[in-house]
Computed example of a mutant assay.
Amino acid sequence: MGSDDANTILRMASLATPMALRVAVTLGLPDRLHDQDLTVDRLAGDLGVRPVPLGLLLAHLTTLGFFERTPTGYRTTEFGENLCGDSLTTVLLNLDTAGGRAELAFTELLHSVTTGQPGYDRRHGRDFWADLAAHPPLRESFDRQMAHRLRAGVPHLAAGFGWGRFATIVDLGGGPGTVLAGILAAHPATRGRLVDLDVTTAAATFAEHGLEDRAAVTAGSFFDPLPAGADAYLLVDILHDWDDEHAHLILARCVEAAAPDGRIVVVEPVGGRQAGTEMDLAMLVIFGGRERRVEEFEALAADHGLVLDSVTDAGGRSVLEFRIA
């Protein structure tokens, strides 16, 4: 192996830059230096950190183009502005948010590959969902993360599948209600109900879109009995968060609640279609899950008497429609 190849591999494997970016966003450096030049000493005093280590952090990120030196300190560059404000990027990089905290589970990848178990529990002492329940700010940041992830794709998802066939849709684990609100707005004859552990944000979302008369919220878990008799039970980015054992429990609840001619609709980045290999590893270390392929979904669903009717790509995800055989 040549020295160039070795250096390339070492750069790919280095944790210095990924962690430097996360620490900078967590400290709010890009926003603080966006409209003003500040010295390291001034910044360190404002943040309550040590000036010499902070200077090392800023120096490294300056070599990468996120900050620039000025006669009076440091300033965020145009490139560095991508780390400012509230965006999917900043929500995922901030170590105080659910997304940033979850990424630290990658330090336990060896454990996950060896055992098939998530690394999150090993890193943080409890599983991801228990961590969110114990820390409301983490739950709030996770809802923001999902809203950011889905926002661009929801209009395409709402228009790219025949949701209007369903008089009633139950959205399971839909968080802030972003997807269900988009579907209901595009299909005025459809009514919806969102089921999640905390429905406060979802209620606000429906009110914001003027959907209170067609959207209801129910506090609950998709592992418990579900509202019965709906035409469709919707699982958006749910099953990939769980291993097969828990995925079977979720599907069993859906089939138990569905009308005889009801449908189970799974929306996810499906393996071999939209899902990338990096996301596969993320699902593993955080949840012990994975981005299943179409044939894996079919095998999973068959145990519950479900037959795959169609697969439609829309909004950066695949929509798998199952009927009860």
Rank of each mutant, 00 (worst) to 15 (best):
T218M: 14
L197K: 13
G276M: 05
A44Y: 07
P51C: 05
I324R: 15
P269E: 13
G220I: 05
L235W: 12
T114F: 12
T77L: 01
F128R: 04
T90C: 09
N7D: 14
R69Q: 14
G125W: 07
R75I: 15
H148V: 02
T70M: 11
A301L: 04
V91A: 12
L104K: 04
R290S: 14
D261S: 07
A325V: 12
M146P: 01
R139W: 03
A252P: 03
F322D: 01
L93R: 03
G305E: 10
A105E: 05
E295T: 10
L235D: 08
V154E: 05
I264R: 03
T115A: 08
D131C: 06
G100C: 00
L157P: 10
M12T: 06
V170L: 11
G272R: 14
G305F: 06
D243G: 14
H246T: 15
T97L: 09
H34F: 08
A152R: 12
G164D: 12
L92T: 10
L92W: 00
T114R: 13
H156C: 01
D196K: 05
V23E: 13
V154F: 06
P71T: 14
H124C: 08
A203M: 11
L61Q: 04
D244I: 06
L150Q: 11
V255T: 11
H148Y: 11
G55P: 10
G80H: 12
T190P: 05
H60C: 13
W163D: 07
D224N: 12
R139A: 11
L33R: 03
S221D: 03
L110Y: 12
E103F: 08
A13H: 09
H240G: 06
H111N: 07
G271I: 07
A232Y: 09
A105N: 00
R126H: 08
G73S: 13
D121L: 09
A232P: 06
L15K: 13
A147E: 14
L281H: 02
L56V: 15
V265L: 08
S3Y: 15
D31K: 07
T72Y: 13
M12R: 13
D121K: 12
L194M: 04
P30L: 05
A186F: 02
L27C: 00
D131S: 14
D171N: 15
A186E: 05
T90Q: 00
P18N: 10
S310E: 14
V179T: 15
A302H: 14
R165P: 03
T17N: 11
P260R: 01
A158Y: 07
G125P: 01
S141Q: 04
G229Y: 06
L132I: 01
G177N: 03
T312Q: 12
G229C: 10
T26D: 03
A301P: 02
A258V: 06
T26K: 03
A44V: 04
V113P: 01
R101D: 00
G48K: 10
V217A: 07
C84Y: 03
A301N: 00
E295F: 08
R75F: 10
A20G: 15
A13M: 12
F166P: 02
T76I: 09
E256C: 09
F223W: 08
L320D: 04
